[in-house]
Design a protein around this nucleic acid. Structure first.
Lengths: 195, 195
DNA sequence: CCTTTAATGTTTGTGCCGTAAACATAGGGT
DNA sequence: ACCCTATGTTTACGGCACAAACATTAAAGG
């Protein structure tokens, strides 16, 4: 808790306290129930109890706000994967679990997942990003893939990402059993040792 | 060529001739150079030389127009794959070629590819769609996958789709050699016979 | 403590957008 | 020849992103 009053009873001081965080929170709330295109600067400002143009004191334009939301999404996705990996106890089971967690996160947070990739702020860092998920994936790949670590990394990422997108777009049914079948590491990467 | 005059010199009859086709063509032109969000009904109407609301005589709303554009994209993608498959002479080489063609088409037509999946009119037909690409993929899978045909189908589609999206979103470099490496069927599906 | 200043928010205005409603025209079937 | 329906137009509304000019406040330095 901050010392600054952010309670809704507080009689709307001229300054908000932490408008930036409030806008991001409002944005995430919208994304939890609608597509990204449903986000409007004015609506977020309304939710935060602030005038429409106040947003521009914290973000240069709408794209920047969406990029901030995308970052939050990437962080949440990475966290979900980390938890799944730990729950599975690492190793081959952990590797498989991160893949399943990736797709399940996408299905549970469709708009946020989509936005995270569409409006990412990366583009400059092609292959090796600094986010949790990429590092974890690469770690697993080196553990199992040996010399072919990079190829294995990219193939695993691609399968999971493709499956997630196809399910989000309604081209494949969002079936939990289907996820397990498509991401089955024993048939996808049979050359690796599945200890 | 149609018998109906569509030349620009024609002195703008009250009725357009084939406004629906003109709007779709204009939309595809925009998609060739910008993202889908850059499409505006008014702009397309302007391009077609028609008032903004004339569009509504042919499409109930903007989403319907985008869906029509998506259909056009699906058709083009399927055609690109068919050509690639034939050029490779079918068989295992043809199978691999369709995958590469899938990703290359996405890179060559980013906005159209994205729109084709995002605004598709399917959703009712989960697994087996009627489009060219799906049928061809399934044919290949049955040819090589035997009993595991469905799993092989979904895995192959997911890898190609995921790779395409990750490259479109700037998470992976749009490198031609990288496509070949990730989609290498010998390492991805080593259990199948690569005649 | 008081003043200045930079950060943060407001008001007002512009030009786009999607789309609804009412009206206009033209071309084909009776 | 006539009307009916498909197709297009005008006008209007509310919402949007964003720009410019102005207002308020908190914090920093004398």
């Amino acid at each position: 808790m901050l010392t600054v009053s952010t309670s809704k009873i507080a009689p709307r001081a001229y300054h908000h306290g932490d408008l930036r965080a409030a806008l991001i929170e409002a944005g995430l709330a919208v994304l939890a129930g609608s597509d990204a295109e449903a986000i409007s600067l004015r609506e977020l400002a309304r939710t935060a109890g602030v005038s429409p143009t106040a947003v521009y004191r914290h973000f240069p334009d709408k794209k920047a706000l969406l990029a901030a939301l995308a970052d939050a999404g990437v962080a949440r996705l990475g966290e979900a994967q980390r938890l799944a990996s730990e729950a599975a106890g690492g190793g081959a089971a952990g590797f498989a679990a991160t893949g399943r967690a990736y797709v399940r996160f996408a299905l549970a947070n469709p708009a946020l997942f989509r936005l995270s990739f569409t409006h990412g702020g990366f583009a400059a860092a092609p292959t090796q990003s600094s986010d949790t998920a990429s590092l974890m994936l690469r770690g697993y790949a080196e553990q199992f893939g040996g010399a072919d670590a990079e190829r294995l990394t990219l193939q695993a990422w691609s399968v999971a990402h493709g499956l997630a997108m196809l399910m989000l777009d309604g081209r494949l049914p969002p079936d939990d059993a289907l996820i397990d079948r498509v991401l089955d590491t024993k048939t996808l990467f049979p050359a690796q040792n599945h200890t």
